[in-house]
Design a protein around this nucleic acid. Structure first.
Length: 438
RNA sequence: GACCCGUUCGUCUAUCGGUUAGGACUCCAGGUUUUCAUCCUGGCAAGAAGGGUUCGACUCCCUUACGGGUCGCCA
């Protein structure tokens, strides 16, 4: 029997990280087993559904690379994949329950009559859990069909999992208490239930449940901040799952190879933005210069900076120096145009180092006297200027960096020399001397 | 409140009865880079508490505490 998993969001809000991780685990499990990943839209709550939310979910999943094999826009043999279009199917199954006396009317709605007995589930993550339905006060018969004729989540969810031949239901732990209800429904419908795996919830840094409003919750925010989808996927995979090795930087493909439900743990995981950013840097570094430049381009453009023919080389100078793509514009602006401000702290450090600061003027002359301009030649000039004044070359590097970029950190100095060219380097040395009133 | 699930460094985690309890993020200190980042080395830092079971418990059992989830004509 081939594995079939599904992600079944309700389009009542944007895609959040909890949902994204649920989708990811379903995707990974299906792919790992050569199975099918189904997307089903649970839009039975007419009042809260929106087209914008639906689109945001599709966009978010695609951005993450979690392409579905069956579902909206992908088609499949088990459609339609919007529950709002499956009324006739639900009616048919509802009749089965009614014929068997498993439902009764209550205030215009229909309730499912639970069997009053203990129900045991064998969860792939949580193990064996038993809920005693003999205790009626704790488990009242549930409404499965509203008085307006529409069906409720529990019923449509079960019918669809059955109809769509879902073999493994991987969902958030907030559904654990729903599972015995669903098991009862499957039994009443005369069907074999799928296997269940309830994964731990994602928590805020303070340990509370992460909800849609919380920082970092909206998947749509990640591309805006300059996260790579593979980094977000990687980070999400590490929340509640581990490869059981010392490695933790993985591509989606590597995750597919390694993923297993046995390695999913049972306790909630807090969201750590620092580690997410670090992983992003790791994935950024694995990009080719060309891919990095393309990924960074929109950020630089929207910052209003001029993009010239050298852009790929310019962008590449900070490939290993930023954690988020949104940091790129600020990091390379001094290479793209001549107006830049000096970091106060950096400037003061230069000023404090009187000896080195004093050499900036003579370095400008040395640059001008070079017969040929190259990174090596420029470094040679720095060394010569420094040693002739009894200083170490290294002492001059920092002041030069500040003079050329205005900042204390940034691209390799040699690369800056090449990219800027002799004239601009000299101009900037002169300018910093004026600023320092030398 | 009832019913469930959980609890290892600040955070993510490894450990499936015997380990100096390992790795990663963060932070700190060195080194490499005549600069920045990368990178390398080292350091700080953990089994919620109390009972059992056992020759031996982070690991199994019980209790307590704490955290989370669920109790809708939401999903």
């Amino acid at each position: 029997m081939s594995v079939r998993t599904r992600f079944a969001p309700s389009p009542t809000g944007y895609l959040h990280v909890g949902g994204a991780r649920t989708a990811l685990f379903n995707f990974l499990f299906a792919r790992h087993h050569g199975g099918t990943f189904v997307l089903r839209v649970e839009d039975t709550d007419e009042a809260r559904n929106t087209a914008a939310a639906r689109d945001a979910i599709f966009t978010g999943l695609r951005w993450l690379g979690l392409d579905w094999d069956e579902g909206p826009e992908a088609g499949g043999q088990h459609g339609p994949y919007f529950q709002s279009e499956r009324q006739a199917i639900y009616d048919t199954w509802f009749e089965v329950l009614r014929a068997n006396g498993r439902v009764y009317e209550d205030g215009g709605a229909w309730r499912f009559r639970f069997e009053r007995k203990p129900v045991t589930m064998h969860d792939l993550v949580c193990g064996e859990v038993t809920i005693n339905y003999a205790d009626e006060s704790n488990t009242p018969d549930m409404v499965i069909k509203r008085s307006d004729g529409s069906y409720v989540f529990h019923f449509v969810n079960v019918v669809d999992d059955l109809e769509m031949k879902i073999t493994h239901v991987i969902r958030g732990e907030d559904h654990l208490m729903n599972t015995p209800k669903h098991l009862q429904l499957f039994e009443a419908l005369g069907a074999t239930p799928p296997l269940y795996a309830h994964i731990p919830l994602i928590l805020n840094p303070n340990g509370s449940k992460m909800s849609k409003r919380d920082e970092g919750a909206a998947v749509g925010e990640y591309p805006r901040q300059g996260f790579l989808p593979q980094a977000v996927v990687n980070f999400l995979s590490l929340l509640g799952w581990s490869s059981k090795t010392d490695e933790e930087v993985f591509t989606l493909f590597q995750l597919v190879e390694r993923f297993s439900l046995e390695a999913v743990n049972r306790s909630g995981a807090r969201f750590d933005a620092e580690k997410c950013a670090w992983l992003n840097q790791q994935h950024l570094m694995q990009l080719s210069d060309e891919a990095f430049a393309e990924a960074a381009r929109p950020f630089v453009e929207s910052a209003g900076l001029p993009i010239n023919g050298d852009f790929e080389a310019v962008a590449a100078t900070v490939k290993e120096k930023v954690r988020l793509l949104q940091e790129v514009p600020e990091a390379i602006s001094f290479l793209l145009h001549d107006e830049f401000a000096y970091e106060t702290e950096a400037l003061e450090k230069v000023r404090a180092n009187g000896l080195a600061a004093g050499l900036l003027n003579s370095l400008a002359s040395a640059f001008a006297d070079l017969t040929e301009w190259s990174a090596e030649a420029a470094k040679g000039a720095i060394a010569a200027t420094a040693t002739s004044a009894g200083a170490k070359p290294g002492q001059l590097m920092f002041p030069v960096r500040v003079a050329l970029s205005g900042r204390s950190g940034g691209p390799d100095l040699g690369v800056i020399f090449s990219l800027l060219g002799r004239d601009r380097c000299i101009a900037r040395l002169n300018r910093v001397c004026e600023v320092l009133a030398l």
